[in-house]
Design a protein around this nucleic acid. Structure first.
Lengths: 114, 114
DNA sequence: CTCATCTACAACCATTTGGTTGTACGTTAT
DNA sequence: ATAACGTACAACCAAATGGTTGTAGATGAG
């Protein structure tokens, strides 16, 4: 179980990254192609430094990478970050479906018995 | 856009709720049927009150509901909360696929031109 | 070369978060 | 009736978060 701690904090960072409207918007914008940090900053009513921090959070979460392009830094979306998040939620979905399956079984048994 | 602010803070709460390993574990446990708060608390190396707070966060996020059962309070998972989260990530997936589609188009055009 | 631009990062601040302990209250069991 | 249990909630604390301003280093343009 100790091994999983890495995965857990990785998931912490992933969902934490999604838990902010500005960051979700950044992900949307850069999924559509690369954007410089200041290019991004232009869209939000906050300082350049604040946007820079948001990008850093996304980067640590593996949702985004930066690529130096001359004097600017292009931010682009990282597909596998998104996939890891979807994977976890799918796992929960599976638990739900299993439970639904068991309930169906129980109902069937009740029908068979009498 | 003002209308969406509600949806945005709703999403904030949703992903924030997922951004903690203990809370993700609680969701897993109660997806498998109802559990009392103290029943849950037994599984974690933290105080009852701490677990109670985690449940409150999940409840505010719409991922979980409580149902009074005698002197205990049964916590059970709320399916649509999970679905709303999956929906957002699917939306992002769609953006990615659209982008992939456009790239494919561009490549096709390049092949047609010469 | 010089200046404007883009980025990085530190220092600071208010608020939120994740945890604690303590107290109080309703419900069940003896 | 009394004790034990399950819950709720307040008060407190340390650390993290989301924002600010200010300073400094690279890089590109004129």
């Amino acid at each position: 179980m100790v091994v999983d701690e890495l995965r857990e904090t990785e998931l912490d960072r992933l969902f934490q990254a999604f838990a902010d409207a500005t960051r979700r918007d950044i992900v949307r914008r850069v999924s559509d192609g690369g954007l410089s940090v200041s290019g991004l900053a232009g869209h939000y009513a906050m300082s350049f430094a604040a946007v820079q921090k948001h990008v850093a959070v996304l980067e640590r979460a593996g949702l985004v990478s930066k690529e130096r392009r001359g004097r600017e830094q292009l931010v682009h979306a990282n597909r596998d970050g998104l996939d890891r998040a979807r994977q976890l939620l799918d796992e929960y979905e599976a638990i739900w479906r299993q439970r639904a399956g068991r309930i169906a079984e129980i109902l069937l048994e009740d029908e068979e018995k009498p």
